[in-house]
Design a binder for these strands. Structure first.
Lengths: 200, 200, 200, 200
DNA sequence: AATGAATGAGTTTTCATTCAT
DNA sequence: GATGAATGAAAACTCATTCAT
């Protein structure tokens, strides 16, 4: 009798092995054999579960996107005010699971790589649009639509920027500092708007 | 025409071909044959000039760094006040030569890839340190050292963030919007500090 | 139902699946997984029953030979004159069970493939020798030994030729036309001999 | 400077190696490595020239068809009467170049294999149609259209049948016997028609 | 200097076979 | 007996690199 749930577990372990392999060797240097070895299975099994290297990579990217979405949603569930929602989104992007060297490395690899892979590109675009719309919606409580859009874009840019810079510095991550930098940006921008309004 | 100079021209044309190839195919999918074809030369010649694929890629990355450095230095030469220096640095990062799709794509590819390549990593670190120190120095005119360091890091993060987001959107680049976003960050932060100081 | 007979049924169904798989995918492209799926059993079971792919294929070939032999023997049982025997042999080769696209395809595949597989080659040779000897024996009633041998060879060649040509035309089979073509050959040859004899 | 004509020579030598490999190992067991070794080149070169195993096999089949067509055309060029044309077609099919064990083996392999490969199937069909039309046309001098068509089909069947039987017998080929068998069929059929006509 | 044919090591992929359940 | 997950050997294919011309 086959072990129920074995397949899901194997797939997850292979995806984790893929993330780790990208972290250690770099996206362009990983091989199926490395991933299989890292997951402690034979090379053939990876194909059995994912069909091809491309499909394994695509599945890994989807996994990362899903996990990020979940982290953000969890934070949003506890947020009550628009300001808290914004903080939840920011914190979600730097949550414990997300802001680890291996995950950061894999994220950026897919981010950059997706530029030349339509299906991956589409996934990222959908995620980015949702993030932008969510940020914009909550910023609308503090400023006009156009400004909200602009600051949302700035916030997203800074989140991505902090991530990419973290990838390069092989040192340990500092979630608090990362969050503080982005929060500071948002806070200062909101404050500027509030000040401007109270002047009039 | 003397053969001297011919070599430099060939090298440059191969480097440009490499940048374009990365843009079109992605870092992990480029081949020497593609690059050679794109540059209109034989495959063997690339080795003759660069020795190996790794060396060609390293040379391409050095070229990008040099060009970026040159763009910034040119702007800085005309800047007089610290504030103008900051703007020059920002503008340099989004100068006409730098903020093109192919260059952005290549930049990010090297950026991400350098994580697993020591020699490239070192180059990027040196550049990043110089940028940070330069920004910090000029921000010191407006705020204490620790704040200057923090805002310098924020500025660099936002520059990188704008870049990476541009790579994903296949559309045309908007230098003005990119500059405005980063300038807004710096300006608002400086204003906040000035306001705080004038309060006391 | 007793388990005895179950095994024979499973084996037969796997052999039929093999024949169908050869027909649909071609001898060089069939896999054990396909055959197992087609027979509605697990991949492991095929090995359990046949030991290996080669043995399954050998069993399939033996099955085809046996069925053909049976079809011919059944016809011969009803034949009384030498001429009727010849017709029975021809008709047996194009009997309903034999002259179906899937069976034809499998036959030819084994026919051609046996060239490089000693054990299969031996089986075919035995069958061919029996066919030749049978045809020759019955043709002896109408002509000298040497001519009988030659016309037997011609008859066998034409049977094989009609078969191979049928394999290529994906259309439906026309047993009557196939039989008529071969019968015409035999009839004309016999007639020529009879005419020659009556001349003298 | 590259050797002019080297490419054509290489391709031809690889195609010959393919034919020989099919003869020796059988269609379903040949590997690119075997073919390369037999041609005395590296494995990579085969891909360089043909792109893939499938394309190499397709090129080999086209080569065999072309050679057969050439052999027949050469014979036809010397034929003057319809009867001579028929003999030329038959002789062409068993010409020295065609009726060799390796070529026969390869021919049959492709013949059978083409059933599941559309592009190959199409090529064979075109050739078969041309052969049938050519035979029919020349037989029309001796018999009505319908009979001519039937005998043309019979002739083609016998040619194919002689070929397939030759493939199985690993012995040396006997071109004269093969030709005689088919000629006998045609001759007897024509004679029968002539006799029938003179009766009336 | 320049070419591009040729190599061969390395990678993905396939699949018969095994084996724990 | 029966399953199908897992293996690993063998195959196709890719491509940086070399080298004769």
């Amino acid at each position: 009798m086959p072990k129920v749930g074995m397949e899901a577990e194997r797939r997850r372990s292979l995806i984790h092995a893929t993330v780790d392999a990208i972290h250690e060797r770099g996206y362009s240097d990983i091989t199926m054999a490395q991933i299989a070895k890292r997951a402690g299975v034979s090379g053939g099994l990876v194909h059995h579960y994912f069909g091809s290297k491309d499909l394994l990579l695509a599945a890994t990217m989807r996994y990362l996107l899903t996990e990020l979405g979940r982290a953000i949603r969890e934070g949003l569930a506890k947020a009550e005010t628009p300001r808290e929602c914004i903080s939840a989104i920011i914190a979600g992007n730097f949550s414990h699971d997300q802001f680890r060297p291996a995950v950061i490395a894999a994220w950026l690899a897919f981010y950059v790589q997706s530029r030349t892979t339509d299906s991956n590109s589409r996934l990222l675009r959908i995620y980015a649009a949702r993030l932008a719309s969510n940020l914009t919606f909550n910023l609308r409580s503090f400023m006009p639509r156009d400004d909200a859009r602009r600051i949302a874009e700035g916030t997203a840019s800074m989140i991505d920027g902090v991530w990419i810079r973290q990838a390069l510095s092989d040192g340990s991550t500092d979630r608090q500092a990362a969050i503080a930098l982005v929060e500071d940006y948002v806070e200062t921008q909101i404050a500027a708007h509030v000040a401007r309004n109270s002047e009039t």
